[in-house]
Design a protein around this nucleic acid. Sequence first.
DNA 1: GTGCAATTCAAACGGCCGTTTGAACCGGAA
DNA 2: TTCCGGTTCAAACGGCCGTTTGAATTGCAC
Lengths: 211, 211
Amino acid sequence: MTRPAEHTRNLIIKAAVSLFAEKGFERTSVRDIVAKARVNQAAINYHFKGKDGLYSEVLKIAFEGLTESSEVHAEELKSLPREEALRRFVRHQLRPLLFRDETSRYIHMFAWESAHPSKVFRKFVATNTTSYLSAAVDIVRRFLPPGAHERAALCAAIGLMGQCSVFVRNRDLFTQDPFRMPIDERFVDELADLITRVAIGGLPHINGAGV
Amino acid sequence: MTRPAEHTRNLIIKAAVSLFAEKGFERTSVRDIVAKARVNQAAINYHFKGKDGLYSEVLKIAFEGLTESSEVHAEELKSLPREEALRRFVRHQLRPLLFRDETSRYIHMFAWESAHPSKVFRKFVATNTTSYLSAAVDIVRRFLPPGAHERAALCAAIGLMGQCSVFVRNRDLFTQDPFRMPIDERFVDELADLITRVAIGGLPHINGAGV
DNA sequence: GTGCAATTCAAACGGCCGTTTGAACCGGAA
DNA sequence: TTCCGGTTCAAACGGCCGTTTGAATTGCAC
């Protein structure tokens, strides 16, 4: 693979990450992507074997980018007090509310997937043994009573992620009329505090017998 | 408006509710609807002035059907102990996991909207002063400390709805391979119990100063 | 410079989408 | 029976979608 080819690949991936994060996979067209990347229409099929192939590649990059992120590195979180670990994790999930950097885009993409997983994403999680939910499950479990079922930890983790992603996905909606939330740094801090406090106060009371 | 015309209208609405609940608004085509309703392609535009008009009508029906529902009538919930009211509300939001009746379809439709609100829905909530979140806010507020900000109640309610809707939307996904949750009556009872316990234990610890 | 493979490009393809068209059909009033 | 507004119908429209095509261009080995 020569240099100019990689250049085009990178242009496409960069534009795709931006658009997939902003609108989700289904609502992003290949024409949107090639226009933003300033490349030819056929380039996506040539380099990635189609829109699905591109998204698969982007998901891989996003997953690696997030798991290798220093901010919520799994090992680092384990060494922290569980309350602090949870707070950092929630704050990290809410990051796209404030910043538009690459990490935020990756999180935003997964927030779309948590709303309605695409076929490509489902195949992706089926392939990768390490679920993108693992970090949430690990943190949640530290708050559950000893006898809690593994499935209870999974459900609680899904609920925790769901609470964060609904704000990330609908950010613009919540700034508008019926809600009028001023989404600035102070607000996000307090929102993260709210979600964290509910989890800290509530998770220990889960009845571990079933679920 | 004559009889046969109303007959066609009702066929369309019934089919539309079923499909909008199953797949959401965007992923449901007018060809899907007219095929299920066994009416002509142009009938939707004739009777409802287009797909958006039909959805607007369906949203109105769903909203009225839910607010008038005896199971979570706002007044009834207020007369119950707050823990019992919350448990019933959560159980109600999870109803589509078990039953495929009309009420479940309405809830499922709003679960799709909570993932990514359509233009029609945003106009709908802007018009109706009584938000579909009101019930959740009312219940959540009973658990918050006295000084809690109104916006904190709204955020907590959004989080509560988000936890329920993520399971409703992705029901089929969670039954499959990486998760393998057996979604039967017992599971839903325990899931509702989990969500309820977390809320009961956590909501009182929200810091009301901000958010 | 020549040859060849990799890459880019404009154009078109087939398919699904929501909507429109204009004729056909229907039932009840005149 | 004639007429006419309300309703149904098959067909087509224009638009966006992901993908394919085949020729033109590029960059490197020889």
